[in-house]
């Protein structure tokens, strides 16, 4: 098959997660009840990944993900697979939805690939579109766990960074093109000290990595941490804009932002489907400021789509892709 070409201007992508599609919820339940081993689990979750990839292809997304169908939660998934972690008790995330907030009880260690199987499967059915490797960052892992082993937060974060690094190496061996680290916890603590800790962790994770290095951060006080993160060893910042009404844009200008930008134009907290016109106008907001050129701008949603109903998620993506096409003509 001919190689798929990611558009030079305004390529479209996703942040990672997608609504859980059948049979993923049932398979996850079985895994939790220990009725499945890890190998069977990844085998059985494939139909869900297939549906996600089909939705992405239908919408026309250029750089896709596996939809994180295996991940009950972005932190729990890794905690279940990193040595030194144990899965804790249920803690509420919202409404009547819970996650098993993990507990660090010993020194953390990587033992075997955690996310590769789903990624490889997605890649095998992606019609040659690149599939992002998406990993939860060490800072978020620590912030959203209970730590009963490391007395020092920094030590815990850097040790987990080494674990994530091992996983990245597995991807590199398989020719990954995009590696994204998610650090949503960072924007909730917009302090220099925290931002610098994440930088140290990223240096471990991304040292010498030739693939496109992406960090995703969302919600909270992005404009406050911006000055502390601009020199991160990454190629691309993937950020939320739509939900905060593009407040961040003027700060990008102010700080002469010149890396690649994952530009969030879809509000994942709203059930309203953004129309094409609206998205084009939102792209225009960025273009007018003349901060970076269209070849550095990736169009995507603010964050993962997992909390949306499937029909709304795919409709939002479709409009986003259509808007990107118009943008390519215009700029």
């Amino acid at each position: 098959m001919e190689e798929f070409k990611v558009p030079k201007k305004f390529p479209t992508t996703v942040v990672g997660s997608y609504p859980k599609l059948d049979p993923a919820p049932e398979i996850l339940r079985k895994l939790r009840k220990k009725e499945l081993d890890e190998k069977d689990f990844h085998e059985l979750v494939r139909p869900a990944i297939k549906k996600v990839v089909d939705d992405y292809l239908w919408a026309g997304i250029d750089i896709i993900s596996d939809g994180e169908q295996s991940r009950e939660d972005m932190v729990v998934y890794f905690a279940e697979r990193i040595k030194g972690y144990t899965v804790g008790d249920w803690v509420r995330i919202f409404d009547n939805t819970y996650f098993r907030r993990p507990v660090i009880f010993d020194k953390v260690e990587w033992t075997s690939p955690m996310t590769i199987e789903d990624w490889e499967y997605a890649r095998s059915i992606s019609k040659k579109r690149p599939v992002k490797a998406i990993l939860t960052g060490p800072y978020t892992m620590v912030e959203w766990s209970f730590d009963l082993y490391y007395k020092d937060r920094k030590e815990a974060v850097l040790d987990i960074a080494k674990v994530i690094r091992k996983e990245v190496e597995e991807y590199l061996r398989r020719g990954v093109k995009y590696v994204q680290v998610d650090e949503p916890a960072l924007s909730t603590r917009p302090w220099r000290e925290d931002a610098e800790l994440v930088k140290e962790a990223l240096e471990i994770i991304f040292r010498g990595v030739q693939a496109k290095r992406v960090i995703h951060i969302c919600f909270g006080r992005l404009e406050r941490i911006l000055p502390y993160i601009l020199d991160y060893p990454v190629d691309q910042f993937d950020l939320e804009f739509k939900n905060s009404d593009f407040r961040l844009l003027s700060y990008l200008k102010e700080y002469s932002f010149d890396k690649e930008l994952g530009y969030g134009v879809i509000d994942v907290h709203s059930l309203q489907i953004e129309n094409i016109d609206e998205i084009v106008k939102d792209i225009e907001k960025l273009m007018k400021l003349d901060i970076i050129g269209p070849e550095k701008i990736y169009i995507d949603p603010d964050c993962g789509l997992k909390r949306l109903p499937r029909e709304i998620a795919r409709a939002k993506l479709r409009n986003m892709v259509e808007a990107a096409k118009i943008a390519r003509e215009r700029w």
Partner: peptide
């Protein structure tokens, strides 16, 4: 009550 938003620096979300 509308979409979810993070409640301060917790991994907990309230409906706006």
């Amino acid at each position: 009550p509308d979409g979810l938003l993070r409640y301060f620096d917790n991994n907990f979300f309230y409906r706006i």
